[in-house]
């Protein structure tokens, strides 16, 4: 991991003190991976561009609060996820006339040790196990574990009720545990 001169941390510090050139440099380095990651989750180029721009504007305003060391990737993604979910909310308003949702409500469970492992490491065994999950289960696991979304946010992103998110998460974990043991 690079640190010091020219690292993302250093750029964020300079953005925090109002350096526009540093912002341009930070954008050039980080816009592409963020764009790919967002696009994988919404599948829509226009929406991706909107979310990307909102995220970087928020970065420009909030860079002064970044205090991490080598955590700029996670920090950037956590800003982007909130904007991504907001974009989904706006799209939901446009798409549907508001209907009564009468589903199970819940919020993010604290990440388990198992989740930390899933989010942080990766090996061939895990790849095979993930591949064996159905796409629905994998999507839930990806949103809640890899992307750090709450149940409520996952439900919005995948457009399924929160109760479904919860039951799929339980099933996905059980299948994964069985495959890995």
């Amino acid at each position: 991991m690079t640190a010091g001169e020219g690292s993302d941390d250093e750029l964020l510090r300079r953005i925090g003190s109002g350096d526009r050139a540093a912002f341009e440099a930070f954008y050039d380095r980080n816009a592409a991976w963020l764009a790919v990651r967002i696009r994988r989750r919404c599948g829509d180029a226009d929406l991706t561009a909107d979310v990307l721009q909102e995220t970087f504007l928020a970065v420009w305003r909030a860079a002064g609060s970044y205090a991490g060391a080598g955590q700029s990737g996670g920090w950037l993604w956590s800003i982007a996820t909130r904007r991504l979910i907001d974009a989904h909310r706006r799209r939901a308003v446009r798409a549907v006339v508001v209907g009564e949702l009468d589903d199970d409500r819940g919020h993010a469970a604290a990440p388990s040790a198992e989740d930390e492992v899933l989010a942080g490491t990766y090996d061939a065994e895990l790849a095979t196990a993930l591949d064996r999950l159905s796409p629905e289960l994998r999507a839930v696991l990806q949103a809640t574990v890899l992307d750090g979304l709450t149940v409520r946010e996952t439900a919005l992103l995948l457009d399924v009720p929160e109760g479904t998110v919860k039951s799929r998460a339980v099933r996905a974990r059980r299948q994964l545990r069985e495959a890995l043991s």
Binding site: M1, T2, S7, D8, Y27, R29, N30, A31, A32, W33, A35, V36, R37, R39, A45, T48, A49, D50, L52, Q53, F56, G70, S72, G73, G74, W77, A119, G120, T121, Y122, L146
Partner: peptide, 26 residues
């Protein structure tokens, strides 16, 4: 999972398929 941790790989992502979005969103 790796990109969040690794600056080098993060900066290596990109290409023709993202250029349009990246320049539109600047």
């Amino acid at each position: 999972a790796h990109l969040v941790e690794c600056e080098r790989c993060r900066h290596a992502v990109g290409g023709p398929s993202t250029d349009a979005i990246v320049s539109a969103a600047r």
